[in-house]
Amino acid sequence: MRAMISCTEFIPAYSELFKFIDRKSGRQAVYDYWRSNFDPDRAPVNQHLNKSGIRGCWDYWSHTLNEEAADFTMTLDEEAGYFRIDMHHCPSKGRLLETKHIEPFDEYCFHCDLYRLSVEKHGLVYEYDFSRTDKAQCSLLIYDPLKYQPQKEEVL
């Protein structure tokens, strides 16, 4: 039998999967799952980074964020050596917050931090601001430390 959970319902299934692992094996097991899932050997963003350097971030997130109908501003300055995403409304966290009959996994957004496994492998710095995830907002800055020095408050 082959059928499905629709890709439009993946996010609540993902959040519930984190909760299931947490109940069964504890929080570290959730982190281990994330690490496995975001392993650079299988991460599409790593393939884009291999191919195009920091522009690979633009290529990867252009595809995913448009398909996810996100509300965002994305900036790439290859000459200056940085890439950033300002997520005005995350479609994933937004859906979890709007689905009133389920409680999101309390660290749901933190799985996005695991993109750093691929990014740092390429000598880039990965900084994430998770301080506004209760509003389905976040910011991400990726930069080449040999070219770019962000202001301390830049990501916030």
């Binding site: 890709c7 439009t8 299934a13 996100a70 965002f72 994305m74």
Partner: peptide, 25 residues
């Protein structure tokens, strides 16, 4: 510098890569 600015209403919500995520999970 390149900038991409999108509102949620600009696109349809259909990210098929999530099928891969479900399969992996």
């Amino acid at each position: 510098k390149e900038v991409m600015d999108r509102r949620a209403s600009d696109n349809k919500y259909l990210h098929r890569d999530f099928h891969g995520g479900m399969n992996y999970g």
